[in-house]
């Protein structure tokens, strides 16, 4: 073999894990419109987004996620490829669904149930736009 192969891309396996609904989720997020799917038959809104309703098998349509919600749980990662401590990994309740994201505050300043607003943020290593949650001013 001549020359060294290029360094592996951090995103190559992650992107292979995305189905059509996953690509659409991140496409909408990159446009600043976080969304998930809602069943046209049983009216269930769920996360993660799906092509078919896992409850009744019905067709799904896309619905925008609320721009505000509440912090459900949060922690920091000592070992991680990105968003290592002091970054805060969080779950937030946005209307009917719970979604992952990064909380834009120090761990010690956060509490469960706190109101947050949603801010899509581009992440350069993967090229994906991700969710971030900004706590409402106290």
């Amino acid at each position: 073999m001549s020359g060294s192969p290029p360094a592996p891309s951090p995103a190559k396996y992650l992107l292979r894990e995305l189905d059509v609904a996953g690509h659409e989720f991140y496409r909408r997020l990159a446009e600043g419109r976080p969304a998930t799917t809602r069943c046209e038959s049983c009216a269930r809104t769920g996360f993660p987004p799906r092509l078919r309703c896992s409850g009744c098998g019905g067709r799904q349509s896309w619905v925008e996620l609320p721009g505000q919600g509440r912090l459900y749980a949060f922690t920091t990662q000592e070992t991680a490829l990105r968003f290592r401590a002091p970054a805060v990994l969080a779950l937030a309740e946005l209307g009917e669904v719970v979604v992952p994201g990064i909380a834009l505050a120090a761990y010690s300043e956060l509490r469960i149930g706190q109101e947050v607003s949603v801010e899509p943020r581009p992440e350069p290593e993967t090229g994906l736009t991700l969710l971030a949650f900004r706590p409402a001013a106290a």
Partner: peptide, 20 residues
Amino acid sequence: FLMNAMYGPWLGPYGVVAAL
């Protein structure tokens, strides 16, 4: 990077490489 993908398309992008 392969292990990161084990955490799937919703958590993996946040850099997760451990269940902890």
